[in-house]
Write a protein that binds this DNA or RNA. Structure first.
Lengths: 205, 205
DNA sequence: CTTGACAGCTAATTCAAATTAGCCTATTAT
DNA sequence: ATAATAGGCTAATTTGAATTAGCTGTCAAG
């Protein structure tokens, strides 16, 4: 990985741990293995590093949005995959989602960084909400909607059902971000949550 | 309010908007209407102001824990209140909870401040989780447990049901904290959430 | 082979923010 | 009445972090 990229990577790590203001260009340089002034060969200033991270993100999200969709271009094709969905499949879906959000290094660091910077301006607020509220609800709503269409889940209100599916996952995720030692506990709650979700919304027979 | 207290109050406001590191003692002094060096007559340094806020909080929470319990010392007395609980009562319970968390000035500023400082150290992480995860789940679990005992709600797993009740509320709250202009939208989702919650867990007849 | 751009370095420089020094006044307790 | 204290002020001082200046070696292109 070239220096320019390594700077972003190390900066992201530091920003996610301490927040922008508590990270010094010196810290970043040190992690990269160069001296602070050398950073300026690659980025105009500290803010430009931050901005580059946000930009890089935005494009990675585009890709990710595709990748998460198992067969992105054709939602009805996904339906095949879920035709035989049962509780264990749903648990797996939830666990995978949780594991991805929780352990994907890039995702995790970015989320933590945004958590610390979300109130700085409207743009960052927007990015956070998009990424961790609107988009997941919309994507999962689509998936769960397929299950409803299949008759595997029953509800009159898919968006609210989706909220019921996702909100606990989101909340447990934030717990793990701030207290990683509670991950096991969170995973157990996760599984119970999904099993109960399935019991509640599953076709009742 | 005396100066010492006003300092805490203005500092809390600023910390909640910008985070500790982005607030200068000068800013605090200005809001209070004194010069920066005068702050040091009241607090040893900037960190001591932050610490005092946290301490003050912790004690307010003690009180609050009592206040929230309608009849704190005697849970079974609460049961009376809820004997005739129906969907509209539940909506009101949720709305009140939401409105309190969202609009109580002190609570709101403190929550936002903690959001920005939660990764600084284990203590702060603990305080956040206690206040916005463990305690609400435990308290609401108690209340919802009463409704289950009354036969007004049905579940085999009260803690998970409580998660289903609270997690969406929490999530919508964080949305409003970062995008206050979405409050209306959040309130509507809130109400739908609770109505669906009631439909799901309510006795089915 | 030599030139220019790239990416590093050390040594300033700048600037802003926290804190301290030392003075003044008003209230309060003796 | 006066001495002590509390709480304010202005004017330093200190510190530390971001950035700039300007030098150097490397390597690829002509």
């Amino acid at each position: 990985m070239d220096t320019k990229q390594r700077i972003l990577d190390e900066a992201l790590t530091l920003f996610s741990e301490r927040g922008y203001a508590n990270v010094f260009v010196n810290d970043i340089a040190e992690k990269v293995g160069i001296k602070a002034p050398s950073l300026y060969k690659h980025y105009k200033n500290k803010q430009a590093i931050f901005d580059a991270i946000i930009d890089e993100m935005s494009s990675k999200f585009e890709q990710q949005a595709q990748a998460l969709s198992i067969n992105g271009t054709n939602p009805t094709a996904d339906a095949e995959v879920y035709r035989s969905m049962d509780e264990d499949h749903l648990v797996k879906l939830g666990n995978d989602l949780f594991a991805y959000f929780l352990h994907d290094s890039y995702t995790k660091r970015f989320r933590k960084m945004l958590t610390l910077e979300q109130f700085k301006d409207k743009d960052l607020a927007r990015v956070y909400s998009e990424q961790y509220f609107d988009r997941p609800l919309s994507y999962q709503g689509m998936l769960l909607g397929l299950l409803v269409a299949q008759g595997l889940l029953v509800t009159e209100n898919v968006p609210i059902m989706t909220l019921h599916f996702y909100a606990p996952i989101y909340m447990l995720l934030t717990v793990c971000d701030r207290e990683p030692e509670r991950e096991q506990e969170a995973l157990e709650l996760m599984e119970k949550h999904i099993r109960q979700f399935d019991k509640i919304y599953g076709r009742n027979f």
